[in-house]
Simulated scan of single mutants.
Amino acid sequence: MKGAAMSTPLSFFLYSSRLAPDCDPTEVGNIVKVAREFNASHGITGILVFDGERFTQYIEGPASEVDALVAKLPKDSRHTDFLH
């Protein structure tokens, strides 16, 4: 269709993990700060829930950006027991 906007395929991902034993819970504030900046610049949105021990996160955005982030998440040493 002439003049129709091209849509970007969207993707989503849900995971849970546990704060690494050697990571102080106060580090979560730094994680959130960096993630907000990264996500905003990559068109990613979502929600992070942290109960002091476990993370649960839902993310969504352009498929290529979500896929790249999902590939990095399990490698982050600040959390363990990554389940998706």
Rank of each mutant, 00 (worst) to 15 (best):
44 I>W: 03
83 L>H: 07
12 F>E: 14
40 A>M: 06
80 T>S: 05
2 K>V: 09
3 G>T: 08
52 G>V: 13
58 Y>D: 00
27 E>C: 12
71 A>H: 02
71 A>F: 00
77 S>F: 01
13 F>T: 03
61 G>N: 09
76 D>V: 00
38 F>Y: 15
4 A>S: 13
54 R>L: 08
49 V>S: 02
40 A>R: 13
18 R>Y: 02
21 P>N: 10
52 G>C: 08
6 M>P: 02
59 I>Y: 02
81 D>P: 01
30 N>C: 12
6 M>S: 07
67 D>T: 06
43 G>L: 04
81 D>R: 03
1 M>N: 14
66 V>Y: 05
73 L>Y: 07
63 A>I: 07
36 R>K: 08
43 G>W: 01
43 G>T: 05
34 V>P: 05
3 G>P: 09
42 H>P: 00
72 K>L: 06
35 A>W: 04
24 D>P: 03
71 A>K: 03
50 F>Q: 14
24 D>G: 01
84 H>V: 07
74 P>L: 08
58 Y>T: 02
41 S>K: 13
5 A>D: 11
59 I>L: 13
45 T>L: 00
29 G>N: 01
28 V>I: 14
35 A>G: 07
50 F>W: 09
15 Y>H: 10
8 T>W: 11
72 K>P: 00
24 D>L: 06
3 G>I: 10
36 R>T: 01
60 E>C: 11
40 A>V: 01
21 P>M: 10
8 T>E: 08
31 I>W: 09
62 P>Y: 02
17 S>L: 06
84 H>M: 05
63 A>N: 06
64 S>F: 06
23 C>Q: 10
72 K>I: 00
15 Y>G: 13
81 D>F: 02
81 D>V: 01
57 Q>L: 14
22 D>K: 13
26 T>Y: 08
60 E>P: 14
53 E>G: 11
49 V>K: 04
3 G>L: 15
15 Y>E: 11
47 I>L: 15
1 M>K: 14
1 M>I: 14
66 V>P: 09
27 E>D: 06
75 K>H: 08
74 P>W: 03
46 G>S: 07
22 D>F: 13
44 I>M: 05
7 S>H: 03
22 D>M: 12
84 H>A: 14
40 A>G: 09
75 K>F: 03
26 T>Q: 12
70 V>M: 03
60 E>Q: 15
39 N>M: 00
19 L>I: 12
40 A>E: 11
42 H>N: 12
14 L>F: 04
9 P>I: 05
5 A>P: 13
66 V>E: 05
63 A>S: 15
68 A>M: 12
58 Y>E: 02
26 T>N: 09
49 V>A: 11
42 H>T: 05
12 F>G: 04
46 G>Y: 04
47 I>Y: 06
15 Y>A: 12
75 K>R: 14
